[in-house]
Design a protein around this nucleic acid. Structure first.
Lengths: 339, 339
DNA sequence: TTGAAAGCGCTAACAG
DNA sequence: CTGTTAGCGCTTTCAA
């Protein structure tokens, strides 16, 4: 079918091994034969068979990215930065989407183990379900978690100061005079959400405002989930005067629902989100938000992984990098209106 | 290092081949031995070595997706639909980002050939540079182009009726009374852009409006490129009364620039885009657009590829599927204001 | 420097 | 039904 080193060797009139040496760019080869092999390879249009090479070298130059939803601009942005960094080092990226479901995630990770990726960057869907990640680590695959952490596992991780970020956001609402502040996120199995909830609670506590379970809502990971939850919440005439949306999809759903229900932002309700979007500057009102440094997060994760893969054999202490968020106040947050 | 079928076979007390049969799920094996092997595999935590398997079966159950920019929601959306469809059939997806650059694209495609993917879905950056795609095809890899076409190559393709979509958009502007209508897109090497330009021209021609080269602008593929080009265009006091933005990133750049320059939409300038975004309904004004059926495009591309890979050996005529766009008029288009 | 030969982990005939 | 054996295409000793 496709041509092999043997074909090239025959064409060049050298031994199989010699051809392999020049094509693989290692060992000693005379100028003359080098030349001949290169020409033969060029003429025949030879392409190496990475799989065969990987079988013997034990490395695939491939990494896996495992995230909840590649359609979410947050993950798409991370993917882009990770990819551009890894690409420079000769790595190709495999992407697996989990829908924030641990079973699916496990399936993805086991697939990557079987395909022998050199490393995995993962945003684990749960803090508690991680046998598959442990298995990857045991298989000698470099693992770094991103956006989230698994405390029980000693893993490299890149996160942001979720709790502080959420604290600042909620506190800004409190400073504006809000008392009934809602919280909406997707699953609390996700460590970053849990930390954001923690920041939310700390802000209220610090201000002496009681924490009401009825104001804390969780839902799925899609825009539609956020929309539905927001509609349910806003339908209540006694709804909060402000809402903290723990991620960009929740925020989008929230904005869509406010629009559909004819509720004005910020006069009738203030909203603040987590993770900035380009279009937040284009909506009316513009959206206040806790911004995350996507570039820094993505590149750092890639570098940690590179370092771990490079020193595969040596023992390395896990490294956790925490990036800072930035509070950006725009027009969607204002003092509570008179009812 | 990692354990192999031999280890499992030894543990189960059967031959290497028998263990392979049960683990690979083929051939005849007695209940008893099947049981023993499964238990041994479970106990040891055996995972197959896909690379070795692929070496002999000649298939990797992996496909490659080659697009300009995974961060662009258009491609991210396609990637998501493609992935969900392929995933059901047991395929994993490799993603390669080209920055709409043919050299980079060639590098990506050759990498995928070497890694022996079973198929490639690609949005080619150029209509004219395609040796690498030809090479993939020759290597027996299934190829389908998406969003774009390469006329010279006989390839499966999924596209939309770009020309008609653009025609409708521009025509809607003309019906509102616009005469000076601008066109902004990224590279015209991209077939879909060329077709959209064609639709733009046809609409003007049909209305008897002269086509001015000065109103046709092209730029790079990022939001920033769109922004800069729009600023340059709007700075001219004799700027068009309406602009057709040929993709979502150009539109975002355009909106950002209008905002920064204090130009009101639609009173001072009308804008209409190509490819709908969720947030177009949330901006002020809401954005008129030619919407593309992402789900249909992505799923169709995946199905075409599946079909082609399934009938790898048989000769199949290339299949080109064209999906319809939908004109959605919102608030960003209105009759030209009085100057 | 070069070539011969072993072997990575697996599937797939081919005998038994 | 089960075991033996020959490769898949490549890198890497080991001798020459």
């Amino acid at each position: 079918m496709s041509l092999t080193i043997k074909d090239v060797a025959k064409e060049a009139g050298v031994s199989f091994a010699t051809a392999s040496r020049v094509l693989g760019n290692y060992g000693y080869v005379s100028q003359d034969k080098y030349q001949r092999v290169m020409e033969a390879a060029e003429k025949l249009g030879y392409r190496t068979h990475s799989l065969a090479k990987s079988m013997v070298t034990g490395t695939t130059k491939t990494i896996g990215l495992v995230v909840g939803d590649i359609e979410n601009p947050f993950f798409a942005g991370l993917a882009s930065w990770i990819n551009s960094t890894m690409s420079l080092e000769g790595y190709t990226m495999m992407v697996y989407t989990t829908d924030e479901n641990s079973d699916e995630e496990a399936r993805g990770v086991y697939t990557m183990i079987e395909k022998r990726v050199d490393g995995i960057i993962i945003a684990p869907a749960s803090t508690r379900t991680y046998n598959h990640i442990q298995a990857a680590k045991n298989a000698g695959i470099g693992v770094v978690t991103i956006d989230r952490q698994i405390p029980e596992l000693e893993l490299d991780a890149v996160v942001v100061n979720n709790s502080d970020g959420a604290f600042e956001a909620v506190n800004s609402l409190i400073q504006l005079g809000h008392q009934r502040i809602g919280f909406i996120s997707d699953s609390l199995d996700i460590s970053s959400n849990l930390e954001r909830l923690d920041g939310y609670k700390r802000a209220l506590e610090t201000a002496g405002i009681p924490i009401l379970d009825s104001l804390i809502e969780t839902t799925g990971f899609t825009i539609l989930d956020g929309y539905r939850k927001a509609v349910a919440s806003l339908r209540n005439k006694n709804h909060p005067t402000a809402i903290f949306a723990a991620n960009n999809f929740i925020m989008t759903g929230l904005l869509l629902s406010a629009r559909d229900m004819g509720i004005q932002i910020p006069s009738q309700i203030s909203v603040i989100g987590f993770d900035d979007m380009e279009w937040y500057k284009l909506s009316t009102p513009t959206i206040s938000v806790v911004a995350q440094p996507l570039k820094q997060i993505g590149q750092t994760a890639a570098r940690l992984l590179l370092k771990r893969m490079l020193n595969k054999d040596r023992i390395q202490r896990p490294e956790v990098v925490s990036c800072s968020t930035q509070l950006i106040l725009r027009e969607s947050t204002a003092p509570p209106g008179k009812q």
